[in-house]
Each structure stands twice: as structure tokens, then as C-alpha cells.
Design a protein around this nucleic acid. Structure first.
Lengths: 240, 240
DNA sequence: AGATAATTCTGCACACCGTACAGAGAGCGC
DNA sequence: GCGCTCTCTGTACGGTGTGCAGAATTATCT
């Protein structure tokens, strides 16, 4: 994708930027956001810490590259998949991007901190605008809807990732990507905890314990998504 | 509010927890999230760093106390203000909480990291459930809507705070709370930047440059809020 | 009353963090 | 060949959270 650039003087690098990014994902997936340090990354790829600075000028730049690389794996293709209703495309994309992020929970805090500013984030925005345009929205409303979808997604994954992991409550920020992320079991446990709350502390929350316990589930996310799209498509969508 | 507790042996403390929390807010407002370190806090209140650990067992606990304290200032009263339409109440509350968080942007990354788990977060949830219940939603739908509103809010403030501050681009994470946060000026500048983008990079984004530039504005937030509430109130709100 | 135990706070220490700086070696253009 | 530029190493600085030992203070028990 990127041009390899003209041959420059100096010794050839022993690694590519992509090697470092792969190693960064390995560290993040293994130990959460705190595990991505310049020193750990260097040792993971067999370099001296300062050698990393010949690949990325600063740690923030490294983090930005990591998050944008991840966004580059977003299933933007489904957004422009003609012959499929536009709303299906948006929902499929949103669900896909959500699972992508939750498959790498360690990256989520980094994404929230570095924003949605890279080239691949722009591509995501373009795709959403295309699909929403197909839905008949004028460009400005499509943009507003695109942003609402984005904030809904980011808020959702932020709260999901912030949920403490009962398996290893030592606060390392790590999180299993396999069986430990069984949504139903998590929801059931949360619901049980809610029902055990002191009686008068939060009566309405306890009364809706099943739905509250299921906050961080695909079902809840999809529900919000559908309601948002309902509102966007409604006839009241142009009062701004 | 909290019981002062029975008198315990040992010397009296020279400060209250609230003193430390106030100092923490001072540091956060002055220098952003990175400015809140145990050592900086200790020096701000005139203590040794380790003395802080007699007030909070760990830095994470301190951060949790900070974020929940902030949530305790959320305008929950408006949610149960009878004699005002429920929808108005929800919107007023959401706008109020958003400005509260944006008035202390340094706390937002901490809130995202520590989740929405404290007692005051629970109170916010209760208030939302009450107002949404007044809107005629069954408890489970009220809960789902409450969560959707929360994620929308958190995603919004997350992206807002992540926006780099052009005034001091040195990445300290600080942010002016006064004139530097003039929404219209910021939106205009963003729109200008978008229009200067390479022609074929993101045509749809450029075509909607005015709306995209206005992403981090109250207007955009309110638009998403209204659309979400439209969808929640619609007749299609019970397909789950 | 005095002894005991609990608590606050100090000082030192450790391991880790991002990264600035100086220098060695490698590879290209002249 | 020379010289420039780039990659990578080593050392170092100031910062981080926090564990541990000890002094001082106070409430409780005998």
C-alpha cells in the first residue's frame, strides 16, 4: 500500500514497521494496554528500546499507528456491497467493527485516547456516508448519523472493556479473548450481582436486572443501533 | 453524606479525603489527566507521596473516587422534575452531564478507564430509568435506552476530549476551559481543514464538510440524542 | 496509671516508564 | 576513495506507582 520509498544511505533495517506493529498487537492482546511499552516492544522484537525510535518518532505515534492499523481491518467493504439493503450493510459493519475491537480489547483505551483521526478512520467515515447516502439521507444528515453511530460504538466498547474481568481481578488490564468473554455468562453473573444489591439502593435498576445485566452484550448493542437508525430514518429527522 | 465512622486509634489525619479529591481536580483541570500523579497530588496538599496511600489504597481507587465524585455533581434532580415533559428532562440532563464532563476534560479519560461503576453512576442510571419510565417504556426497554444514552454520551465526550488542542499542540493533555473551547470557532476551523483535503481522498466527507466539522458540538450531540429518543419512542421499539 | 494496639505519616528503595544524547557501524552517492 | 546519512547500542535523567521499615500519635484495655 505505502510506497517503499527511495533507497537511502545507512544500514538496512532489520525489521519493518509492520513487524513492530504485529509485536505491539501481540503485547496488547497478551497483557492489555499497560503491556505496550517501548521497552517491552523492543524486547519482543529483539531490539534496544531506543531503536524503536527509528521506526516511530514517539510512543504516541506508535499508538496512533497501532489504532489506525486496527481500523484498517474494519469491514468497510460490506458498506458498499450493492444489492444488499443499506440498513443491513450499516448494521453488519457496525457489528463487525465492534467485534474487531473487542477481539483486541487492549487497543480500545488507546483508540479512545488517540481519537478517530487516522486515514483508516477517514475511510470508515467515507463508507458510512456512502451507505447512509444510499438510505436517502442528505449529506449533512448522513454525516450526523455517521458520527452518532461512531460515538455509540466507541462508548459501547469503552464501557465493555472497562468492565473488570472477574477471572483475573488483579487489574493488569488484560482480558481473555476466548471463553472468558462468554457474553451470556457475563450477563447472567452481572444480573445475579444486581439482584443481590441492597433492597432500596437502586430499585429500578434491580427491577430491570436482566436488561441491565445484559448491557455489554451484542443484543444490547444491536438494540441501540436499531433504535438510532429508526430515529434517523424517521420523518422528524430534519429539525436542526 | 457518609458516616464519619467511629473514632479509631492513631493520630488524627491532617486532611480529609475531600481535600485530596479537590486537589486532584485542581491538578486535572490545570494539566490534564497526566498531571494527576500520586507525587503531584501529595505535593499539592503538602504531604509525602506515600501518605496518600493512607487515604486511598491505590491510585486506581483514587481515580475511581475522582470520577464518581464528578458523577455526583450530575444534575440528576432534573430527571425527576415532575411537571416537565419526560423527554425535556432527559435532554436537559444529558446536556448538563455533557457540559459537566467537558468542563473537566482531564477527568474524561479517567472516567472511560474506570467505567461507570460507582454509586453515583448507579444514581444516574436510576434517574434515567425513572424518566424513561415516565415516558411509558417498560422497565427493560427503559434500561436499554438508558444504556444507549450513556454510551452515546461517553463516546461523544471521549472523541471531544481526544481532539487535539490547536492552542498548545505539545500534547500535554491539558485544555483551556474558557475561550479556547469556543465550539463555533473550532467547528469552523475543522471545516476549513476538511475543505483543504486532497480532492479524491474523502469526497463524501468533504461534501459534508460543514456537518463533519461540527462533530464535536452541542448541536451534533443534541441531534443524536433526539434521533435516539425518536427511535426509542417509535412503535418498532419492541422487536428484541 | 500504664501497656498495647492501631493508625498516620516519613524516608528509602525498587522496578519500570518515555526519551534525550553520544557514538559505533553499515551502506549509499560522489 | 571520501563523506553523508541512517540504524542501532549504551548510558543517563527525571518521572511513575508502590512496598517496606520505622517514628510519632492516639484510643482502648488492664
Amino acid at each position: 500500500m505505502d510506497a517503499p520509498g527511495p533507497p537511502r544511505p545507512g544500514p538496512r533495517r532489520t525489521l519493518t514497521e509492520q513487524d513492530l506493529l504485529d509485536a505491539a498487537f501481540r503485547l496488547l492482546d497478551r497483557g492489555g494496554p499497560r503491556a505496550l511499552s517501548v521497552r517491552a516492544l523492543a524486547s519482543e522484537v529483539g531490539l534496544t528500546p531506543n531503536a524503536v525510535y527509528t521506526y516511530f518518532p514517539t510512543k504516541d505515534a506508535l499508538v496512533a499507528a497501532v489504532t489506525d492499523t486496527l481500523l484498517g481491518r474494519a469491514p468497510v467493504a460490506v458498506l458498499t456491497d450493492a444489492g444488499r439493503p443499506w440498513r443491513d450493510r450499516v448494521i453488519a459493519f457496525a457489528l463487525g467493527l465492534r467485534s474487531l475491537l473487542l477481539d483486541h480489547p487492549g487497543t480500545v483505551p488507546l483508540l479512545l485516547a488517540s481519537g478517530f483521526r487516522g486515514p483508516h478512520a477517514l475511510a470508515v467515515g467515507e463508507g458510512l456516508l456512502a451507505a447512509l447516502g444510499d438510505g436517502g439521507l442528505v449529506p449533512d444528515d448522513a454525516a450526523r448519523a455517521s458520527y452518532a453511530l461512531t460515538t455509540h460504538l466507541l462508548g459501547t466498547v469503552a464501557l465493555d472493556v472497562a468492565e473488570p474481568d472477574p477471572a483475573e481481578p488483579d487489574g493488569t488490564g488484560s482480558r481473555g479473548t476466548g471463553a472468558a468473554r462468554d457474553e451470556e455468562a457475563r450477563a447472567a453473573r452481572r444480573t445475579r450481582e444486581l439482584r443481590a444489591l441492597p433492597a432500596d439502593a437502586a430499585p429500578r435498576t434491580v427491577a430491570a436486572a436482566a436488561a441491565v445485566g445484559a448491557y455489554n452484550t451484542t443484543t444490547q448493542y444491536r438494540w441501540g443501533l436499531e433504535r438510532l437508525l429508526d430515529g434517523v430514518c424517521g420523518d422528524a429527522a430534519s429539525d436542526s
